[in-house]
Design a protein around this nucleic acid. Structure first.
Lengths: 336, 336
DNA sequence: CAAGGTTGCGGAAACGTTTCCGCACACGTC
DNA sequence: GACGTGTGCGGAAACGTTTCCGCAACCTTG
């Protein structure tokens, strides 16, 4: 079903069909009616390929995401796609398994498809080859500093989140607050640690940092064991993420500690599980949906215009639940 | 960077460039070397739009999914995209919010983009208009019977899953097993209910079915209250999904019942939470990744060929955890 | 050495749009 | 009545490929 058949059916030229259907001026009401009727009757749908080839724009963007299995990403992806849709763009979804080569291959494929722009999510991709193949294309990176020159950067306020979490513990009255840190190869780990340090510096309190190789439950469990052995004075723990906090809760339960009676625990991420644990977990939530929306909006704003790259930090929010309370012995500000 | 510039740089015609880069025969080794060198040097990437326009195939498929926020879908999507990638296809991701109009709009957009095929996921979409716009295009529907004529159908074994869950309870020795059903407007609810009935019929046991308006925690909580009031003889509950099972656990805890001591509970879906509840939840897991892989594979198999539509049921698996045990009073087969 | 086949390559058509340019015609104006 | 002005429309170019067809040169074969 091509424009030619519509033209024939309406008894006009293809140029006129195109003008009539695109709302262009310079076409009489009568012929426009005939053309739209014919198009309707034949079920004509313009071939977007041909349109794009001519126009040099596909109204399609690429979304490169490490791993949808990680619960952090689906909401972000959903929000980004929804915003793109609102603004008339489709999204090519490309999981990369957080792998540099795959990311490069993907970028090449996206370029060949002539996408109008690319959103890059994830910490572990980048590199000169990637930057090279993306050169000249609008790019937005999410949750990592750009290794692609000229890219917009949308970040979650990890550092501010760490500060919020620890400030909450300080305000509860805790004086010895430990941090179960993630690997310092990850920016998020470093930023959350920095926030922890900020808050303790503000309050003039000492730091106790235990760093793990990973960010999962096992790391949290193990580090908590070490913590109890080496720093018995601590009455509160800020874990670098919720899964480590889950491990911490298990370890504390195993050793007979009450949470939050003996020790308070704060996590980071607000995974779904957090509200179902016993006790429910105080944690910091990233606004993943907003992150996705802002990333897509930034990209679409940049397409067409040649605005300078922006850098935007999306706020996080502290959710106080059952796992934090004033310390029993020392007494917090609210204690008698 | 077009093929023309490469041709000029290599001192040959564009036809020769095309042949050289596509591994076609009929081009001498010397010129091929010159051409590939020039292409490499200039960083030439073929414009896939033009290729597709000519070839009538975009190597792109559409993936229409209700809602990525539902933890059922991301893994499925990931697997489908991964398989498509393996076979050289890209994926346009289209969330529909489970809405008929959006699904229709989406289908139109995909058709205009000339996708080679479409995977439709979700229960609530369909309709004559959708079928009309998709006519002639390879379509695979996942987890619902096709309302699109000629579509392949990939299903999870919901009925078999219900049967497995209830058979497990029967084998534990339960004689009064209730079902907390979902709304009968949903095929999954009906199928799981059917499996429940199958297993009880096999065992010659009576049915006790309470149906809710939805499938969430609140429904599970409310129905469990009714169940305890009206059917005190029941020692086991099969909930239509895990969230209802979570509600059931809460209700039972609230009324002072021990799980599995007094009452056993089985869910369906194996959501992440299931392994973290107290007690951990016995449940049936759909193989969402396999569902996604099979859907994508079926679609790609169908593109090009004109094989007849297939119908495939992907097996489910029972995960026995802490929430099920033989009944205390009556004694199961293992009881003294 | 002529005839026929093979090899390597270029010209040009085709895919389906959009849009520029130009043509014909009607209309108003001097 | 000649002349601009504006309106409505068609022809054709262009977007960047792939591929068909044809042409020249070479090789084989009798």
């Amino acid at each position: 079903m091509t424009i030619r058949e519509v033209a024939q059916a309406a008894g006009v030229s293809i140029a006129t069909v195109s003008r009539a259907l695109n709302g262009e001026s310079r076409v009489s009401a009568a012929t426009r009616a005939r053309v739209t009727a014919a198009a309707e009757r034949l079920g004509y749908l313009p071939n977007e390929l041909a349109r794009s080839l001519h126009a040099g724009s596909t109204r399609t963007i690429g979304l490169v995401v490490p791993d949808l299995t990680n619960p952090f990403f689906p909401e972000l992806v959903q929000a980004a796609v929804a915003l793109a849709d609102e603004r008339g763009h489709l999204v090519l979804l490309c999981p990369t398994a957080d792998d540099r080569d795959t990311a490069y291959r993907t970028a090449v494929a996206l370029r060949r498809k002539q996408v109008d722009g690319v959103i890059l999510i994830g910490d572990r991709i980048g590199g000169a080859r990637l930057a090279e193949v993306l050169r000249g294309l609008p790019v937005v990176t999410v949750d990592r500093e750009a290794h692609v020159p000229g890219a917009d950067v949308i970040l979650s306020a990890h550092r501010e989140g760490g500060r919020l979490a620890v400030r909450h513990l300080v305000e509860c009255g805790h004086r010895h607050i430990a941090h179960l840190a993630g690997p310092d190869t990850l920016r998020v780990s470093r930023d959350r640690l920095a926030g922890y340090s900020d808050a303790l510096a503000e309050a003039g309190l000492p730091e106790v940092v235990l760093a793990g190789d990973g960010l999962d439950e096992a790391d949290g469990y193990r580090l908590t064991g070490e913590l109890l052995a080496r720093h018995p004075e601590c009455t509160a723990v800020f874990a670098a993420n919720d899964m480590m906090a889950v491990g911490a809760l298990s370890a504390l339960r195993a050793k007979g500690f009450d949470v939050p009676g003996d020790i308070s625990v704060v996590g980071f991420d607000d995974i779904h599980l957090a509200g179902y644990l016993r006790p429910t977990l105080t944690t910091v939530r990233q606004d993943t949906a907003l992150l996705g929306r802002r990333a897509a909006a930034a990209l679409l704003d940049r397409i067409g215009t040649d605005a300078p790259p922006i850098r935007e930090v999306v706020p996080v929010e502290l959710f106080v639940r059952e796992s934090t309370a004033p310390p029993k012995n020392t007494g917090g500000p609210d204690a008698p």
